Every structure is written in C-alpha cells, then in structure tokens.
Simulated assay, not measured.
Amino acid sequence: MSAEPSQALRDGRYVITRALGEGAQGHTLEAVDKRVGKLVAIKRFQIRGASSWKGVELAEREARVLASLAHPSLPAYIDHFEEDGALYLVMEKIDGESLGAMRRRRAVLGRDEIVRFLRDASGVLDYLHGRAPPVIHRDIKPNNVIRRPDGSFAIVDFGAVRDRLRPEGGSTVVGTFGYMAPEQFQGRALPASDVYAVGATALCLLTGEEPENLPHRGLAIDVPAALGGRADPRLVRALSAMLEPDPDRRAARIAPLLAELG
C-alpha cells in the first residue's frame, strides 16, 4: 500500500504530494521537504510482511550506495529512515521527462540528442565504474533516464545496483529484458554490462522500437539494419561496439567512441 497524498513523514518534515511510479522494489513518491521548501523524490519499500529479504537487502543497498555518490547526472542522496514498517529513501527530484515517458508518447531522439545522451551517460559510467569496487547500475533503460529541460540527461533508480564484485558467482539476475547484456542472464553483471544497456537505450530512442523487436544477427542486434542506410556510419559503429554480445569484445567505455563521433 502506497503513502497517500498529504501524508507527512519523518515528524512532518516530508509531506507527500503525489505518486510518481511503482516498481518491483517499491513505490516512488513526490514530496515537499518542509525543511528546505523543495520537492524531493521518496522511494518507499515495504519491510513489514515483505515476501523476500532480497527486496529489503536491495533497498538497503540502494540507500547505502546512493549516499556514497555525488555526480551532477545522478540524484543527490538526502535521507533515509524506517517508519511504520517501511524503509524510505529520500533523494533529489530531478526535473524533466523520462525517456520511458517519451517512448510511450512515441517520441524519438535525433542524432545530436543521442550523442548528448551518450556523452552524459559516459560521464556517469566512468564515475561509477571508477570507484573501488566499481558500482554497476544493472538496470539502465528508458524509464531510468531523465531528460532535463536543458537537454542534459540524468540516470536514476539504483534499485538494482551492485557495489560488491562476486567473482565466485551466485549473483541474482537483475535487469530488464531487451536492455540486459547477455552475461547478465548468467548473473554476471560487469561494468561493460552498463555500456550495453546505454547502447540499447540509445538505439530504442533512435528507432522507436524495443531492442528485442529490432533485427538481429545471431545474438547481436543488427545495428545497421535497425538504423537503415541513411544513418551516420560513425554512430552505427559506436552503437555496434556497445552492443557486442561478447563482453570481452564489447567497448569497455563510451568515451573513446565519442571521440570518433565528434
């Protein structure tokens, strides 16, 4: 059960204004932070009666990881607390429209907007993957990318994040079909898995089609066929490198590809 509009949390500090969305890990709410007079986003995870401790573990991990991050293209951590059998994670509310919402109204992005998205995503991934140990988002997709009013892009929702490498295996399969790199189906999420997800998101917004509906050659999305003969060949090469099924052959970073795109 989600919080109702006008409900107050944290001794009245946060006043819920509306629901923003619902995911596998919990509800996302909009609220006013009365202390600073700004809108914030709050994720609510039901702990009491939770069907699995895995969901609680992911919620606690998301709060811990977000609290350790500081990047202009990521939501800033504000607070987290437990109240009435639920865990609440409070973060900056990023203004703009999600790429998922754009998809639902059948909008597509042009080449220059896609290059801007790749540039912003490159900065985020270099920051996350450069931490020790690397932070792997594991669920980059249109719903988790917001285009701000100034045209820049932010990546949100760290509900699937992993911040500890598990070389012995046994990791849970987390992600979204179509945007997950093949190795994620084996429970092996790598930094290159996020590169794949960014490429799949970019291709989806260029074509207006979900990745699984695009032409394939074997396990690989056929990027030239998906984009057609009029596409910029440099962009075709960049996205093909990001969407290589074999993580050992896939582009490990987006930044070197941007140099070619100009």
Rank of each mutant, 00 (worst) to 15 (best):
A70C: 13
E83W: 08
D79T: 09
G55Y: 12
V32D: 10
V56C: 02
E57A: 14
R35A: 15
A63L: 01
Y77S: 04
K38R: 11
E82C: 02
F45Y: 07
P72N: 09
V65P: 00
Q46H: 11
S51Y: 03
S68T: 10
R44W: 02
A63W: 01
K43C: 04
A59I: 02
E82H: 15
R61L: 12
R35Y: 03
F45I: 09
R35E: 15
F45D: 00
R35F: 02
A67R: 15
G49Q: 11
L39G: 05
P72I: 07
P72Y: 09
A59S: 09
K34S: 15
R61W: 04
K38D: 01
W53I: 03
H71R: 13
G37N: 14
A41D: 02
A70S: 15
R35H: 12
L69R: 08
R61N: 11
L58G: 00
H71T: 13
A59M: 04
K34E: 15
E57K: 10
D79H: 11
S51R: 12
Y77P: 06
V32L: 15
V40A: 08
W53A: 10
K43W: 03
E60N: 08
H80E: 11
S73R: 15
D33E: 05
A67E: 03
A67I: 00
S73G: 10
I78P: 00
I42A: 00
S51V: 13
G49R: 14
S68M: 13
P72E: 13
E57P: 00
I47F: 10
D33V: 09
Q46L: 09
V32A: 04
A67D: 00
L74N: 11
Y77T: 04
E60V: 10
R48Q: 14
